[in-house]
């Protein structure tokens, strides 16, 4: 479709919050107990992250890439397309990210940015699923790491911040774009989770910029 600029963001909210969260609920029911497996994968990533034998960092890449592939196929392609025609394109974005993540080494940094990234990863695993029941939507509408896109993307951003050295910028593009897309959708639906999605890029880009400055000026201690 051409002439995108003639549309406003509200033109692209195609469904009601009730329809969206019922879709999440029906999806959760359909893939159960995959949620237990994906959460277990999250714990495995945490363990591997801090036992960084050289070969293990590629295991993390493999796990996270597989989870993205699952979200792309099972959620975006099979489910989300039923209410959002643009989800076809989102699935394509996620497929590209699968390839990029598989080539991204993950070794943890033990500095402030590493702690920020680790906190984002753990929060995505443990706190994000609690938002649905806390906001009155019930546990069956919880969005789980490795199953639903939002916590998967947030956790991945956390991992990319944790990763030693600045993450390859092209690996960040899809997660950051997704945060904007999903954040805007949730904002239009009046869902408080929107702020989490919209704040995450600021946090990640801020950490990346801070780290780049530290790497660029390692000897600058403020003394002459």
């Amino acid at each position: 479709m051409s002439e995108w600029w003639k549309y406003t963001i509200s033109d692209f909210l195609l469904f009601s919050p009730r329809t969206y969260y019922r879709m999440i609920e029906r999806y959760n029911d359909a893939v159960w107990p995959a949620q237990l497996a994906t959460l277990a994968f999250g714990v495995v990533i945490l363990v591997l992250l801090y036992r960084p034998a050289l070969e293990r960092r590629w295991i993390i890449s493999g796990i996270i890439a597989v989870l993205w592939a699952f979200v792309a196929g099972a959620f975006l392609w099979m489910r989300y397309t039923t209410i959002n025609w643009a989800a076809t394109y989102f699935a394509g974005m996620f497929a590209i990210e699968v390839v990029l993540l598989a080539r991204q080494p993950f070794r943890p940094r033990r500095d402030a940015t590493g702690i920020i990234g680790l906190a984002l990863f753990i929060a995505s695993l443990t706190l994000y699923p609690l938002l649905a029941p806390l906001l009155g939507r019930g546990l069956r509408q919880s969005e789980i790491f490795g199953v639903a896109p939002d916590p998967t993307v947030l956790a991945t951003l956390g991992l990319l911040v944790v990763a030693e050295g600045p993450p390859r910028w092209w690996t960040l593009v899809v997660p950051l774009v997704w945060c904007l897309i999903s954040g805007a959708t949730l904002w239009l639906m009046g869902s408080p989770e929107a702020w989490v999605l919209l704040a995450a890029p600021i946090l990640v880009l801020g950490a990346r910029r801070w780290r780049a400055r530290v790497i660029a000026a390692p000897g600058d201690s403020g003394r002459t």
Partner: peptide, 13 residues
């Protein structure tokens, strides 16, 4: 039917 009828394959909706 904008938004209101876009309920996917949800049988109840």
């Amino acid at each position: 039917s904008w938004i209101t009828f876009n309920v996917g394959d949800d049988p109840e909706l």
